[in-house]
Every structure is written in structure tokens, then in C-alpha cells.
Simulated assay, not measured.
Amino acid sequence: MRLTLHTDYALRTLLYLGARPNIRVSIRDIAEAYKISENHLVKVVHRLGQGGFIKTIRGRGGGLVLSHPPADIIIGTVVRFTEEDMMLVDCDGVSTGGRACLLAPSCQLRGILGEALNAFLSVLDRYTLADLLKPADLSRLFPELVQSSRDNAEDV
């Protein structure tokens, strides 16, 4: 199974915001950090806002922040919300204009793949954004945060 770019960017956005608690960031900041399309990220951020994962604050001093603590954002929930189609095979012919697979009446593949998908999502449900933001991992994910905290320490 492969997640869409939309979900990939959504998870990256949440990681970026989670690593910067209480700091409002812009879509441009995130796009530049990951070297991804700002236009595509606008759609992702809009969707994350619709899902209640992030808050978008307009105007001067505005930006993006998480709506909930990272420990309350379940990865499986994010994936279910951002993936439009979790169908692994098209037995019913949805993508082929209603032409169902000839094997559909007696094939066991749909059930097996459904079970596999449920197992996949079950694993994701065991993890939160906080699990992905452990301090030791943050320095690898966002080296600029380590440098920024060093710079701030020197200013004191």
C-alpha cells in the first residue's frame, strides 16, 4: 500500500508544527523546509483545518498551530481522514465504470486485503504525533531546531 502525497504532506505538516509548540508558522515555512510545493500544501493545510488537526490564524501574527497536543493526534485517524480512497483492489469496478472483476463472486482476495488494511490501520492507531516527536529524533528531523535552541541559550 502506498499513501498519497496528500497524506505524506499532512503528516509532515503535523510533524513540523508539533516540533514547534506555541510557535505560529506559515505554509511557506513548511514548504521551504521540506522543499515541497506551496500550492499543494495550501490544500493539505485546508484539509487538516477541516479535520480539526490544526488551527489557521489569519492576519498579522497569524500562522498555523496544532489544535490539540501531539499526544492527542492519532496517526491512524490522520491517515483515514486524508486518504480519500483506502480501497486496495477494485472488485466492484468503481474505477472501471462499473465493470466488476469476473472473479469477484468467488474470490477471497478482497477479504484478505481488507484484513491486511485493518491490520495496517490498527498499527497506525497505536501511535500519536507525540510518539514521532521524541527529543532524540527531533534533532535528526529538524536540525535547525537544535541550532536555534543553542543560539537562544547563548543569548541568555
Rank of each mutant, 00 (worst) to 15 (best):
V42F: 10
R150Q: 12
L121I: 09
S37P: 15
R99Y: 05
G97M: 06
T82V: 14
V89K: 00
C91R: 01
S148Q: 08
M86G: 14
R150D: 09
I54F: 06
L103D: 09
D85I: 10
I57S: 10
A31H: 03
P70I: 06
L133T: 09
M87H: 05
R99N: 12
G49I: 04
S149Y: 08
H68F: 11
M86K: 13
L133P: 05
C101E: 06
G98A: 08
I23G: 00
L15I: 08
L121G: 05
P69I: 07
G59W: 01
G18S: 04
L15G: 03
L88H: 00
C101P: 00
Y16A: 08
I75M: 09
I57G: 00
N22E: 14
T13I: 06
G52Q: 03
R24W: 01
N152K: 14
R60S: 12
P21F: 02
V89P: 02
F81N: 11
L66D: 08
T128V: 07
A31T: 12
G114E: 06
D72N: 13
R150A: 11
R126G: 13
T77Y: 04
E83A: 12
G51P: 06
T128K: 03
T56H: 09
V45S: 08
Q50K: 14
I74F: 06
R12Q: 11
S122G: 15
K35R: 14
N152C: 11
E32C: 13
V156W: 05
L66I: 11
D72V: 07
T96M: 02
G51A: 10
R20I: 06
L5Y: 12
V123H: 07
P69G: 09
N22A: 13
R60L: 08
L133G: 12
G51H: 07
V78C: 05
D85Y: 02
G62D: 08
R140I: 09
A130D: 11
L88Y: 03
H40T: 15
N118D: 15
G98N: 07
P143W: 00
G59T: 05
I75H: 04
L66A: 01
G76S: 10
T4Y: 07
M86F: 06
T77C: 10
V25E: 09
F53S: 04
E32D: 15
R110T: 04
L117M: 14
